[in-house]
Structure formats: C-alpha cells, structure tokens
Simulated assay, not measured.
Amino acid sequence: MPPRPRKPFRPQGQSGFKPKKTAPSEDKGWDPVAAWYDKLVGEAGSDYHRHVILPATLKWLDLQGGESILDVCCGQGVLVKPLLEGKIGRYLGVDASPRLIKAAKSRHGSDKRVSFVTADACQPGEWADGTYDAATCLMAVHDVPEPVGMFQNISDGLKPGGKVVLVFMHPCFRIPRQSHWGWDADQKIQYRRLDSYGSAREIQIATHPGKGTGEETIFYHRPLAQLLSAIGEDGLAVVGCEELYSHRRSQGGGAFSKAEHRAVEEFPMFMALVAIKRS
C-alpha cells in the first residue's frame, strides 16, 4: 500500500506558526549535533532517562514479550537495551540523523531482532507499514517541524488497537528561554515563571552555551491543545497521561532547600501520553 499524502498541520487560532520548510532529502534531524547528543545520552541514557523517562516508558508499554516495536526518532537507540530485556520480538528504530543511526547500529546492530532506518519521521515512508504492536517517541515531539506528519506515520505503522507512548518536555512548564525558576525571599518559596506559553514558536537552542561552537538545534514549542489536536488528527486516541517530575533533590538545608524540594514536586518536567490506533 503506498503511503498516504501528508496533510500540513494548521492549528486553529492566533497561536499557530508555519515552520521553516526543509526538503525531506536534506533534513538530517540532529545530525549536526550528533556527537554532542551521543555523548550526553550514550547507551544507558542520561540521568533523567535512567530515573524518569525510561521507567515511565516501559511502564506504559507494559510489554508481555514478543511484541514488535517501532521507535520513532530513536536517536542512538537508548531504548533498545531495556526493550530487549523485555524480550520483544522485533524492533525498528527510525531517525533522520545518519550519525545517530550509525551510533545505534554500532551498539545494537548485531542483534537479529533489531534494525534501523535513516528517514525523516515527518515524511511518508515504507517503514510505516502497519505491522507494529506498539510505538514510542521519546524526547522528540518538540524536535520535529510537522507533528501531524509524524503522528500519521506512527498511526500508519501500528496495527489496529496498537499503542504509542510519547514522552516529551512538559509544554506548560518547560519552555526553553521562556520558563525559569525564581525565588521569593519574602514568602520563602521557589516559583516557576512563564514568559509565554500560548504562542507556538521556534526556539534556537545552543548545545554548548558559552563555548561559541555555533552548534544549535530548534525546539518547537506548541501549546498542549495543539499537540493533542495533532495527535488526534489521524486516527490516534489519547487514553493515558502522566506528568513526570524530577528525581533530583537539593543536598543542602534551610528554607531554600525546603522550598526547592516542594517546587520540584509541584512542577513536572516531562509529560507522558499514551494513545491507541482506532480500528
């Protein structure tokens, strides 16, 4: 069956934006910063991967063994090892970055259950073939310019009733350069300040702040309503949600430490959504 043509995502209201157009053949995702990202995440994942992101993903996947898994925007394959430990039947990782796919193959390519393909997750692809029991997309929803294209591919890749687990930066509280921690000395509370939320925007992120390397990525902030609309536009229905909080705690004492502990328990860092493909 040939891939369906892509419908551009046009969010309603004044908060929409038009992402910069990039030819599919030229889009290599995080390839320019692949070395930095691979060093940051590695095989086992960053501190947040190990303690927050991966445990939540595996919980919501609820693997029984033998499943086929589609990992969209897989990067260097940080999810592969825990999935294999869960005795999955088949895994396909898809990412636009040739360098990250190369790193993934070097770590996991010898396992016959595992395969990788270099492809833009937002563009039609034969890899989205409707044969997968479940799909994942970890920390990448905010990295793609056309979310509807990616969610449509995920839907196309799943069997009817298949599930997808999405984990991403919390769109209400973690907006680069638009959200900050603050300290109220009078009330002795740590608070979260938001400079904007309702306006979708592209935000340039430097991978080595202050070092002048010139390496940058783009963070696509979208309000939560836009993301939910994009997910539901092509056959996916959200059935579960979890807000994920930091595991880190201050090692100091006094009023500030107490306030910091309370703040990290009140303001989530990530969001996990679970959706199923409607029959």
Rank of each mutant, 00 (worst) to 15 (best):
P5H: 11
P5M: 12
R6P: 07
R6K: 13
P8M: 09
P11V: 01
G13L: 06
S15R: 11
K21Q: 15
A23P: 15
D38C: 07
L40Q: 12
E43F: 11
A44C: 03
S46T: 15
S46K: 10
H49N: 11
V52Y: 08
I53M: 07
L58H: 10
L63I: 11
Q64K: 13
D71G: 04
G75Y: 03
V80S: 00
P82K: 11
L83D: 00
G86V: 04
I88W: 00
I88P: 00
G89C: 08
S97F: 08
S97E: 04
K102R: 08
K102E: 01
A103M: 07
A104H: 06
F116T: 03
Q123A: 10
G125Y: 03
A128G: 07
Y132Q: 00
Y132V: 00
A134W: 02
T136D: 00
H142E: 08
V144G: 03
G149F: 04
Q152D: 09
S155W: 00
G157K: 01
L158Q: 01
P171I: 09
P171D: 06
P171F: 05
R177C: 06
H180L: 09
W181D: 13
G182N: 12
K188M: 12
Q190G: 05
I203A: 03
Q204Y: 11
Q204S: 11
Q204L: 12
T207R: 05
T207E: 10
P209Y: 10
G210Y: 15
G214H: 07
F219L: 00
F219M: 01
H221L: 03
R222L: 08
Q226N: 09
A230Q: 02
E233C: 05
A237V: 11
V239N: 11
G240P: 05
L244N: 09
H247T: 14
R248C: 14
R248V: 15
S250L: 13
S257W: 08
S257C: 10
A263C: 12
E265G: 15
M269I: 12
F270V: 01
M271K: 08
L273K: 10
L273W: 09
K277P: 04
R278A: 14
S279I: 11
